[in-house]
Every structure is written in C-alpha cells, then in structure tokens.
Design a binder for these strands. Structure first.
Ligand SMILES: [Zn+2]
Ligand SMILES: [Zn+2]
Ligand SMILES: [Zn+2]
Ligand SMILES: [Zn+2]
Lengths: 166, 166
DNA sequence: CGCCTTTAGTTATATTATAACGACGGACAG
DNA sequence: CTGTCCGTCGTTATAATATAACTAAAGGCG
C-alpha cells in the first residue's frame, strides 16, 4: 500500500514563495544562520498569507506539515526570523508579516532597516514603508531632548487607497 | 472593636494625584462620562506609578481597595480611561501610562491628541512627546501613497538622557 | 569516532484579554 | 410613585498569546 507521507512545502507553497525561501536560505547562510526546515516552513506560511498572521494561526498551519508542532516550535522560529530581519512583528495586531525589503538590501551585514507599517482597518492588509523623512523626524525629536534612540515602532492605522474607492 | 474598613484612596494617593483625579473627574463630566470609584482608583494607581503598569499589576494593587476585583474590573476601567484619552497603552510593553497632556488640552471636545512615546530600555520610564514634525512626516508619507491615516502608534526605544550619564 | 553547539521535542505554566450573564442603581417618562 | 431603560459592575469561565525548563536529537569539527 502507499504510505501517507505528510505534505511537503512543494505541495503547499507557490513557486514564487519557494524562490523567496531559497533566497532567504542563502541570506541566512551569509549571516551565520541556518534556515532549517521548520524555520523555512514558518517563513513560507507567513509569506503565503496576504495579511499578518498570529503565532497560533501559524501553528495551526504548521501542524499540517509537522503533526507534533507546539507553541515553542513556532515562537523559536519566529525569534530566529525576527533576528534575521526576515519578518516583522506588528505590535498593534500581535501578528507577523514578511519583510518586504530585507532580501533586496544592498548593505552587506547589519543593514539598519527601519520600516514603518500602514495597517488598513478595512481589509486588514499591512504595507511596509521606508520613509527617510519619518525616521529623520523621529531621530531629530529624540536628539533634541537628549534621548538616544535604538529602534522606533511606527504603525499607522487607517484606510488604504484601494479600500477608499469602494 | 474597631471595624477594619478597607483603605480609601486618601490613604494611598499623594495630594498631587488626588488633585489630578479631581480634575479628571470634571473632565469626564464635561465629556458625558462618569469617573466612578473603580475608574478613579485605576487612574490613580497608574498616575502614582513612575513607569508603565500592566493590567494585572493594576489588578493586584486594586485588590487592596476592592478585595473582589477581577480582570474585567480592570479592563473595563482601562477601556473607559483610554476612550476618554486619560491614559495611553504602550503597545511594545503591553502596559499603560497616564496621559501627560490631556487635562491641559485647550480644545474643548475631541482634541486630536497625537502623541509619541520614548521608552528608556535602561530605567523603564516612558515619556510622552507631541512633535508636530513627526506627525506631519507620517501624514505626508501616507498621503503620498493614498493611505488615509486615522491614528499612528509611535514608540521609540532607546536610552534616556539621564541614563546616558551613568 | 568523540566532543561541542545548535536546534528541536515535550510538558507545563505564565501572562494578557474577553465572553457571557445576571444584578444593581440612577435617570426619567408617564 | 413606579415601571422601564441604560450604564455600570460582580462573577465565573475561558480564550489568546507567550515562555520556562528539561531532554533529546542533529549537525559541525577535530
Ligand atoms: Zn522590512
Ligand atoms: Zn484596505
Ligand atoms: Zn497623551
Ligand atoms: Zn532611563
């Protein structure tokens, strides 16, 4: 009889996603990290989603690949991907999105990636900005009062262009 | 024998805090809200703290006044205080701070209060900014891509001036 | 192979937040 | 006065998010 092997990413992820995962794998290797099977699956699941996904949503889907996945499985993968800069956490949604820029960053090693996020309250999508003007305004305001910033969370809620036309 | 009455806010809150609570009470009355006893205690506890406080920290302290307080007790008070603009939620800390500006706002009714927060990663204090430059940069960037913003969360992590000198 | 480091499995628990329903009390119309 | 309405609160249970702690396996390397 045929054995019922668990599905692989090949069954579930689009070619575009799998290509991104391959690039991410190379990126990790170049930064002293290993995009292991679990991490790759988690990044793939986040990439395939069109909206931010919660950790337990990821866990549910991950279980279709690995039946014994548990919360630490997901959180460890998320920690790694966050450290590599391959995903972002959206604080206001307690959810995660893929980074739109990291793999295209030309600064080899420690690109100071500072993004802002636009959250559409109608369709739920999140888009990522890299506006130097915002980063500069924040930096200047902090400097003016002697505060040394290390990281800024900027999450803008509103209605996206597409949802305004409906 | 003397009855062991539970402590009142008079026993626990400083005169400055109690004065702020009186002003907040008048503010609520002017905005179709009632600063009830529980809400007043929660706002007082947040005001007395020098750092952001979590909902369950508030609950612990609230129980010294009301022994049967439960999570919904605190969260309902927090929801009210957030709606009135008397406190802010710091997303990155999952904690709450008193608003530094609201009671001084001169716009009667619906002051469009848009603040930014500086979180010191050394001492844990949070200070509130109102930088028009940051708000404008955000608004301009959103407008440029057709996004209509309704609210922006800006939380800047770093080291405060005081902690840098040590 | 033998050793060490990283990664992952497993169980339990911590932390934050909300659902649901009934009771109570003041405001107010009749 | 009295009945109704509505905002508030008490209470119990549960949902949703996240981590601690320990063990086992896997991979890199001399
Ligand atoms: Zn990014
Ligand atoms: Zn939209
Ligand atoms: Zn404020
Ligand atoms: Zn400090």
């Amino acid at each position: 009889m045929l054995t019922t092997a668990p599905p692989t990413e090949r069954d579930q992820f689009s070619p575009g996603t799998r290509q991104l995962l391959d690039r991410a794998s190379a990126y990790c290797a170049a930064h002293a990290g290993r995009l292991t099977e679990t991490r790759r699956l988690v990044l793939g699941l986040i990439t395939e989603a069109s909206k931010p996904v919660g950790a337990y949503d990821i866990l549910d889907h991950l279980r279709s690949f690995q039946k014994n996945a548990a919360p630490p499985t997901v959180y460890r993968a998320l920690d790694f991907l966050l450290a590599q800069g391959l995903i972002h956490r959206i604080e206001r949604l307690t959810a995660f999105v893929g980074c739109a820029h990291r793999l295209d960053c030309t600064h080899e090693g420690g690109c100071g990636h500072r993004a802002q996020f636009l959250i559409c309250s109608v369709c739920g999508t999140v888009s990522e900005l890299e506006e130097p003007g915002i980063a500069r305004a924040i930096h200047d305001a902090a400097k003016a009062i002697g505060f040394r910033p290390s990281h800024a969370t900027v999450e803008i809620e509103g209605v996206c262009a597409q949802c305004q036309t409906r």
